[in-house]
Design a protein around this nucleic acid. Structure first.
Lengths: 200, 200, 200, 200
DNA sequence: TTCTAATCGAGACGGTACGTCCCGTCTTGCC
DNA sequence: GGCAAGACGGGACGTACCGTCTCGATTAGAA
């Protein structure tokens, strides 16, 4: 996160310590979840003083938010462009399903969302890092289909985005079923057909 | 929930106290959210000893889970049966949107879900009290449409349920946009057309 | 210290806990001294939560100050009244020497005095509980001698008080020699003769 | 103390840095007292890195002990020798009073003494630098009086030393009254008369 | 004058203690 | 026996220093 040096001489947060903390924090998150992760245990586990944590982040919330954001940011979805809507949709749905199914996310996803209700900075982060890129990818896929004439010009692409993301996210994160390949295929079919019906 | 008398003696949990606690708890939930609601503050706010809380519920989780469950249970969605799929869907979507938009739910919804990741009892409660009835209502609407021939016999009704619930929930709880009437209409159109495309 | 009950029902600081803390605190004082005594260790040693300490005293300083004050207050010097100045002086000096030599006092006396430099409440406490009673006892002894004609009417009794207390305190607390019986006798002689020389 | 050059290279502890630290340390001592003086604040105040302090002294105790010792050493009392006991005593008492009244000493005196209880090196320093020279001066004054026949040969000069130092120290450092000139005169009278009475 | 090694400011490091807040349990005396 | 009040042991929070260590920049004696 930081680690860029200051103007003159001066101390700098050490990469090794940051890495040890990061590793310990994710291990705790995986073991006890977002709410029960404690700074004290993270520090102990990383073999580090509590101050090393607070030198990097101003609070527990900030630390977890930032660590998770960085990890999520590292896995942006590519935008498929096969030239066929159904194929593009399937590829996108498969990618998103894979990212949502990551053990970390299923473990802490809801906790993050909950925290976002209180913490505007976290909410903004989730929007910009998690939601926006996926909405953008979905929008691009749909817009391509409109350009190629696979979807009518008046199709409600905003609704289309919701259809791409919401049912899958719901299934994986809330219902905690995995959404098998067949599910994805039928979802892709439904999205395509459904969107055609939304043209003004 | 309780307030049934115990076996011996004449002592019974007093209704007035239970009500004061309930009121205070929801007030705290609304003000500070699920995670930051503390038993200490609820007791103080209710003008009640902490023991009065623990006499009724075994833990903070249990108390909040139970209180919220009772409140949610009180607002089960009716199953519309107008004889026309699109009308039924619109009615159902409107009802669900109304319930999801309740200030309490937007405030603590994600927190509940997060806690459910750790707390199996809460997860089970949410499934049985929140999800199942709404899935059942959606299923009944869709099944009626199949019976009337509005949907083909092979339509994937499980996916249909997701389409009814997920995009709307996502919009209201995550995106925090309200999903206006026009959104509901297009969504209803997309569900109907989409489901027709899922027949084997 | 406290332990008097509040008006209605209500919790009360438990005597047993207070005693355990007191015992642990004096044990720590004896082992590591005033400055290095820590609340954390006192609590651990007493088998008590830190909060139990802070419920009784608002800070470490306050706790130690109050505990020590109470212990000191319990040992007020009696005022000897044998009718002979030299005998009275010897008795008083012996008593004071005994109290100053208590292991606790030699261990923490200077620390208390140091803290008093910063802490006006402590300073006032030391003055009223430690100094004033001893000054009063000395003054009474000397005034009796004036009344009986053993000392001239113009003798400087304020100086007399200093002569009774200071050399002995200095020897025991600073020089850390004990001031044997012979020392006390010569000191008594010097005080008597010295005071006679201060009459205007 | 230091500032002598090392074997190789050109590096030497820089005088300017040492001076800045010294000045900052005494400023902190004066402001917050012995116990609350922190290395961190001294370094910051001196515009110096913490390492600069630890390069010169091995610990906070050592640093403060050494700095204070050097400052005290600079103000040894001269031994008056007027040929008349009472005059010598008055001169000595006046000098000692002046030194004890120095703002620094009244601020940190008790703290030093307290620390000396734990820290043998500090205790030894105080004895050799503070106490011993003053005892020696007092002893020389008294011995001269014995030689001149102003005091009997058997007079208890050890007690005499206590009488010179203790009441005055007590008044200035503990009672925090100043001991006016009249007090010194009566004290001198009392010492002279008192000592005459201690001859075997 | 150039080289070179220790000192410099800055502050991160692992630790220990501070004083606070909340958990879920326990105790007290009133009703 | 329920009740209000709140003390209890325990654990985590975020802060302040301790004495040590790490950086790159400075500085002054030796070559």
């Amino acid at each position: 996160m930081k680690d860029e040096r200051t103007a003159t001489g001066g101390a700098v947060l050490r990469q090794r310590v940051t890495e040890a903390i990061t590793e310990a924090a994710f291990a705790e998150l995986a073991e006890v979840g977002y709410a029960r992760t404690s700074m004290e245990r993270v520090a102990k586990r990383a073999g580090v003083g509590k101050a090393a944590l607070y030198r990097r982040w101003s609070s527990k919330q900030t630390m977890l938010t930032e660590l998770i954001r960085d990890r999520i940011t590292a896995s942006l979805p590519p935008t498929p462009a096969t030239g066929v809507l159904r194929t593009d949709l399937l590829a996108l749905l498969t990618t998103i399903r894979g990212q949502l199914s990551a053990p970390l996310l299923t473990r802490i996803g809801a906790g993050l969302l909950a925290e976002a209700g209180t913490d505007a900075a976290l909410a903004e982060m989730l929007e910009s890092v998690v939601a926006a890129p996926r909405r953008a990818a979905a929008l691009e896929v749909l817009r391509g289909a409109v350009d190629r004439g696979e979807l009518p010009p008046g199709a409600d692409l905003e609704l289309g985005i919701d259809l791409v993301i919401a049912p899958l996210a719901f299934r994986v994160l809330v219902t905690r079923e995995d959404g098998g390949d067949e599910y994805l295929e039928r979802l892709a079919d439904a999205i395509e057909a459904g969107l055609k019906a939304t043209a003004r």
